[in-house]
Design a protein around this nucleic acid. Structure first.
Lengths: 217, 217, 217, 217
DNA sequence: AATGAATGAGTCTTCATTCAT
DNA sequence: CATGAATGAAGACTCATTCAT
């Protein structure tokens, strides 16, 4: 069964929910099971068993199985890009505008930490995006669109300062993201392995700076 | 239902099968449906309907639903990395060893073409890898392991020629792959859009060469 | 779920119950919901919500969902026929025995008023009788049987006075009841429409008197 | 769960369905069970067991439990009133217009036979009408409305011939129907008892003719 | 070879009922 | 007394798979 109201995914927030201990246990069990086996291969009786509650309890707070998915992914999605964008803006709010490498390092470290913290949600999110075209479309429209505009502004700023190459900002963002993804992806497939954030950040920044930076003579 | 014998996925090859017109139609329908909705959200009756055959016919050649998946992914998986590795070896078989950029351009163009051609299989493959840990483990053991060894040799070769930075070859391969992935991924989510192979190759190579290349003075 | 102890339905009386404001609210909500959607399509949580109480409160007074039904129908059933029979007896207690038309008019007006007042209970009662054979059997045995005897006596009285045709009293009662039913039934289906008691009584009596009356020459 | 597409009930006809032996068995079992226990108190596993088939088979032809209900009631509803109305028209197609008593006797015998033959469907139909307001509304709009017009014409015809009293035709029809109902209803509650059509018809006609007929002097 | 009716285990979901707070 | 979280037994429905025709 496909997810009907993907819109709702982006509207609700987990924080607003009053969750009892058992209901949190349901979410924890669902997070594990969905990420390990996928949404469709996880039955609600699996969830109940792992959460140590009855199946009825699973449905008390989350009216449907999809409801659990929404409760898990909603807060996640709201932070994937928006927070990054917020970070950019905060950066400019500071009078001390950093050089691009400092800026990049901050972003990369922040996002790698976010990915590592939300590894399981990210895995579930990707699973859904690959088998639910609505999900993908809505995500792109609601989330990606707005972020691109702001990020582009940042890139142009550093391009004018002649710190990075004069490529299409979208292209630059693509490289930053895909390089980070190169470090994050293997950990999605084997979630028990932990990402070394510091080293990864150093490596990503080193590579990206070579790839798009401009050496001042 | 999880896939039981992932091992078998790597053993069988579609080529060995004698397929009638109707059976090919079943595979074509399955490829489309699996990639659009995911394996679990696709029912065998969906497949039969889209393929224009009876459900009985679906089960004539492919004993189970998983059998269809194996028939689709088996040949694909055997080519994801192995063929790339083969390409490397062929390169060395030639006496005319090219410079790294030429070598890189050939690999990138080849793999981007492969991804574009096998977009749907790739999408299904990723879906499975994310919800079937057996699949991931077997893939890594059987396929990735062997490729790494050979690729490492190639990288070291060019490092000794001082054409690329002296980083861990695995790290370099990670960047090459993730940069390509940055171009391929959006097309997985929206498979109707076609990748401009030439331009993408140019851009990938340009970025990678800046990122890991060493300018000869 | 079928009703187990229909017997009990006829034993208990609502009057014996001490009902708090909230419990009356439960009964009122149940009456509305049962009559609109039927007993089975009404959930106890619906009742609790409409009554503005918690589900626990619903079960405080009425041990089971069937208990609510019994509380609603018990008093109703005890009045459907018995009171009519009582009416007959009272009539004879009077020394002024009325002519049949007067007698009939009194009965019809009384029963139509009763139906109109207890429209919702009647609707629920019919629903139950049609899907609960125990209910029907018990009702006939306990309630109808006794009434018939007394009513027969009344009919024979008027037949001997040569006011009505000499048909089987059961047949005559059938016509009286079915003619009244002809006016009551449409209002069961559309309970918001109100029955015009006076006009209906006039019409019923006019028709019945033509049908079974004997003109004195 | 209420019935969603009552409209469909009136559109489809059982005759159009190709039913296998087992599927007919499902309908037969459903007819019995629904009429005995009611729609809601009958589970699909009950139906399967009584029909001697698997639960899957129940759902092969009738996509939902409601689908079975529609298959049972659709053909019934199309004949409740329409056929009666058709009968009237056919009567007028004959040059030998019968007197009202002959006409009435024909109608009553026909409808009592219909009720007796379709006793179980009628019982189910009434159950549904009492717990599904959509059902009632649609039935009245689609079926009753049209019939009234034609029946009214017939009544006026006999009124002009001075054979029956000059009451509102709707009122007359009400008496005819409710008197018949008086004979049919007890058999709904105890469906194993068979209605004596001939005697019932005689009695109904005798009573109705007294009630609305006009004696020619 | 092909069909599609038939199967039955398994899934999501509802709901009457209980009980700790 | 009142609450509502928790339970678990059904119930409607799906679907991979089989097999007689």
């Amino acid at each position: 069964m496909a997810i009907n109201n993907v819109e709702a995914l982006f509207a609700e927030s987990l924080n607003e929910l009053e969750l009892t201990k058992k209901q949190k246990s349901v979410l924890r069990a669902s997070l594990t099971l969905f990420s390990e086996q996928g949404f469709d291969r996880t039955s609600t009786s699996d969830i109940a068993r792992v959460a140590g509650v009855s199946e009825g309890t699973v449905y008390k707070q989350f009216k449907t199985k999809e409801g659990i998915l929404k409760a898990l992914l909603g807060p996640f999605i709201q932070q994937v890009l928006p927070k990054a964008a917020g970070e950019f803006l905060d950066t400019f709010a500071n009078t001390n505008v950093p050089d691009f490498e400092t800026f990049l390092r901050r972003i990369v470290a922040d996002r790698l930490t976010f990915f590592e913290t939300n590894k399981l949600q990210l895995k579930i999110f990707i699973q859904e995006i690959l088998s639910n075209s609505d999900m993908a479309a809505t995500f792109i429209n609601k989330t990606v669109g707005g972020a691109i505009t702001r990020i582009t502004a940042v890139m142009k700023f550093y391009q004018q300062k002649n710190e990075i190459v004069d490529w299409d900002p979208v292209r630059i963002v693509r490289y930053i993201m895909s390089t980070m993804l190169g470090y994050a992806l293997p950990n999605l497939i084997q979630p028990d392995k932990k990402l070394n954030i510091e080293q990864s950040t150093d490596e990503v920044v080193e590579f990206i700076m070579r790839g798009i930076g401009i050496k001042k003579s």
